[in-house]
Design a binder for these strands. Sequence first.
DNA 1: GTTACTCGGTTAAAAAAGCAACCTGGTAAT
DNA 2: ATTACCAGGTTGCTTTTTTAACCGAGTAAC
Lengths: 198, 198
Amino acid sequence: MSEPTGLRARKKERTREAIADAAVSLFLEHGFDRVSVNEIAAAAEISKPTLFRYFPTKEDLVLHRFADHQGEAARVVRGRESGIEPVAALRRHFQAALDRYDPVTGLNDHPQVVAFHRLVFSTPSLAGRLTRYQLEDEEALADALGEGIQAHVQAAQVLAIQRVLARANWQKIADGRTASDVHPEAVADADEAFSELQ
Amino acid sequence: MSEPTGLRARKKERTREAIADAAVSLFLEHGFDRVSVNEIAAAAEISKPTLFRYFPTKEDLVLHRFADHQGEAARVVRGRESGIEPVAALRRHFQAALDRYDPVTGLNDHPQVVAFHRLVFSTPSLAGRLTRYQLEDEEALADALGEGIQAHVQAAQVLAIQRVLARANWQKIADGRTASDVHPEAVADADEAFSELQ
DNA sequence: GTTACTCGGTTAAAAAAGCAACCTGGTAAT
DNA sequence: ATTACCAGGTTGCTTTTTTAACCGAGTAAC
């Protein structure tokens, strides 16, 4: 009643993990631009074409964790219970993410997560590609919200809010505060930001 | 100046090791006949056809360690330094194996090795197949020794001696003695047995 | 201004692995 | 006696991976 987890699928999943882990740890150690895909492939013990079969570009080796959330906003809207407003569903979803300290909210003080965020935001090509992902996310959300310019505006606003909130949280964490310390403010900020939207 | 160890070769070697290790440890735990090749394949996380691509039969999962020594006697003869008699070369080779407690000499008290030997010798189908390997070894050695019935006789005698010596050593180990304790006797036995041959 | 690297990324062919289905022989239920 | 299952192996067929070669862009040497 769950995933049809054959031998092949299991190994693919593990290979993917191994590649991404090798890449991220090398990036964290030496910096994104000072690690070549050849070195990553060697560390993960796979060939270069295999690497690019799993990840379309070097950037995606880092961003796949965001890519896994791709279209999530659209899914939340489409999968909401009847009688619930789209924006309300997105708001509840974000609050839940805050409560479990989901890294996408920026509210997570695990050293690995913090280092990972710093890697992304301090590497231009990564930050650039990330915004491109977010644009695609925005379009998908707009589709889910309906038609017309109105849907696009609403989608842009919601995602903008999430970006700002995440950035604010991550900034406070980067300043040395703990996630649980920041949590109340994060919730208050989210409340304030979202309530202006409905 | 060594093996040109590409990615492919390395992974094949590791897969082979993983299969054999999984098989032997399952055999030691439950007995050769109470473990199916399906269980081995599952434990090694490979498919059944893959298992049989690496090992021709179930028995070879156990005997590949002997198979790795296949033709060794013939190689020793062919690779001997000039001026050295074939039998002398074989004798020195066996003595050296005794001195490093090579499992093939029976003179090894590591629990895993002992358990492995008991597994082989107490499982009829394994013991049977092992003697078939030894026959092939004997033919190869005979070829290396020259032509005629004389070469065959000599080959048979040398390998018979090695079998008897190994069996004697392993018996003493199985009786609870340590390898280093048995070592002097093993050397003396080997000396006596080989010297009657020259 | 060539030459010759190295980088990210691609291509084509060949090897290897997975999967499902099969074969043969034994053994247990019905 | 039939049925049915499980054992050790095998047979295509498809998917995945390796390999080596290549591309186009940048860059350092000379």
